[in-house]
Amino acid sequence: MTSQPLGSSGAGNPTGATRVVIVDDHAIFRSGLKADLDPAILVVGEAGTVEEAVAVIAETQPDVVLLDVHLPGGLGGGGREVLAGSAPLLGSTRFLALSVSDAAEDVVAVIRAGARGYVTKTISGAEISDAVRRVAGGDAVFSPRLAGFVLDAFGTAPADIADDELDRLSARELEVMRLIARGYSYKEVAKELFISIKTVETHVSAVLRKLQLSSRHELTRWAAERRLL
């Protein structure tokens, strides 16, 4: 997965290593994750609370922040608050949410706050390294569960032409989301749909943008039912 050529905005590291800050309130998890990550990924900072995280991120300006959804400190908003506190950096620093929680409210809240992806803490070091590189390259990282939430939120019917572009997923985007929910990797999705990985990534990024920006009635209702907004 060498998506580095795409990472036009992830510049600033001539060595080619991806600079990462790990934000998690459990020191054991932080050190375990650090050991699991690829050597090409450089951990430049760690934080255990909302305040620490905002300070460390502003200071180190990493390529990627691995952000736990549940964090102590701040106003109790956890990862969302870190994202809000780092809003000026969202253009250059990508956030990848990391959580033990599968709850829709946790996942969708951080995505809507600006995270570029979501993975569970149980995934392997290789998978998480891959996800970090992908996010650093400007792509979105969708776990099967997040894809499931997206399909749940946007509905499984494809967009009509009359619909607002933000409010529904196109037929292709739906196909991609369905395959990801079924456990397909991007490569497998590309193979299954006879498109390039690059096109898959474009679709996934488009879905992420819709998830972040859509104010569609159903999404609002869906979120309200789960107390997201």
Partner: peptide, 9 residues
């Protein structure tokens, strides 16, 4: 063996 279940609808 881990089995991940995702449901929609």
């Amino acid at each position: 063996h881990a089995v991940e279940v995702v449901t929609v609808g």
